[in-house]
Amino acid sequence: MGALSWLTEPYHSAFMRHAAMVAVLVGVLAPTVGVWVVLRRLAYLGDAMSHGTLAGVAGAYLIGASITVGALAAGVTMGLLVAVLERQRRVSEDSAIGVVETLMFASGVILVSRNDSIGVDLTHFLFGQIVTATRHDLAVNGLLTLVALLLVGVAFRDLRMTTFDPAHAAQVGIPVGAIGTVLIVLISITVVVSLSTVGLLMSVAMLITPAAAARLVTHQVPTMTVVAVGIGVASALGGLTLSYHFSTPPGPTIAVVTVGWFALAAGWSAIDNRRSGKPRDETVGRAMAASEG
């Protein structure tokens, strides 16, 4: 079998082409949002939101509501609860996230345990089931992705300013709190769109890893976003192709491929730093210089 036919063979069947389209949507959206999650050091929030969404998914199942709406509501609720807890001076951000994640994830597990019939289907959402994605899933995910990308496009400069220097951003009139809420909504949408591909538990892989890899090899946010999306799409399609040929679960395979890209970027960055004589970690280098000064 030639390399080209090895790559194209999985997509002879309609359901795999369908799956590829869903995967590409996640590969575009999650890294685009992930760039801001990485730059704001909110990886833990992203991870916690993916877990906490279980409460929304399970709750929606039990009352027969839309899973998408349930997951979105859970994500936004979680973000708002974290913001409320953070107002307590002695509650740090990671503690607030930990407390709310515990509440939401535990509530989700309790809701699942209340109804045996939802146990099987929920595993699809926990670990992803991309090959059973329906036309409806594709349409909903496509619409959500479009909305999220538009939001990022409109708020791009303000996202950059509030991430880099929130005090200055507030001074020049940017609604810093509102931009933070927009980011929470974007993370929630990303988790929802990731449900059917990599699943809730590994959605953080697509949210964080491509953006973290891109951060290692770029110096501007627009370039970082383009590289992250490139890695996201390549991981989605690469993981799907590998899972077809090696009969592995698609979600985890895609997640592992993103980590492979991260390893490549880390290697590239290390070689580049050695060539230019920069410290292994610029931030550590600067902190050391400041403390010596």
Binding site: D165, Q220, V221
Partner: peptide, 12 residues
């Protein structure tokens, strides 16, 4: 170390 150029910083 934030990924921003001097132009982008000043323009903000």
């Amino acid at each position: 170390d934030f990924p921003i150029t001097v132009d982008q910083l000043v323009l903000s």
